[in-house]
Amino acid sequence: MLSLSSVNWDPLFLTFKLALVTTLVLLLVGIPLGYWLAYSRSRLKPLLAVLVSMPLVLPPTVIGFYLLLAFSPNNAFGAWLEQTFDLRLVFSFTGLVIASVIYGIPFMVHPIQSGLRGLPPAYKESAQLMGRSRFSILTRVLLPNMKPALLSGIVLSFAHTLGEFGVVLMIGGSIPGETRVASIAIYDEVERLNFGQAHLLSLILFAIAFVILLWVYTRGSKNWKGVVG
């Protein structure tokens, strides 16, 4: 008989921890990146726009594979990280966060970029004429007037990280308490023909994803729809 008491909650907690940390890092990275993509006239802009969108089309395993190569202590970058900072990113939570941030970047950057582009240019221009700094204009004028877009970025990034599998499997493996997130745990349980546990974890994940998306559909903005198709 299956009951909630028999659920191994560790993978679920780890999943939420990963999603939370990833979303926070994505916010810090996504806002300046979205700002640059929204307003820059640099010739490098198309290049960066393409790089930001790559995770939308590449199989997660491709990203995971290259990150695995990059982070591996047998290669230059990974060796340098280990020697300089005593940091090993493969099969670690930190590595998982970095991989999730890279994989989730379009889900944060695109809503922010379109939210900024959707604001009347006169908001930014008036604030510029008032002699305010870029930081003040961004935090006091632009971001507060595009809350729905910002919220969409946060919710999409969070929800997307919950469902990650390929990238996590490639560079995180399945270390309990460290890299064994819910999607990996479900896969492992199925492999072991332990369908009951797989069922419970799947159902909980399904319910959470459903509630989050339902909230976005009923309360979220129009900005996010373009991102997920």
Binding site: P120, A122, Y123, E125, S126, A127, V141, N145
Partner: peptide
């Protein structure tokens, strides 16, 4: 500006 552009 033509359309006032007050910060909402």
């Amino acid at each position: 500006f033509q359309d006032a552009a007050l910060f909402p």
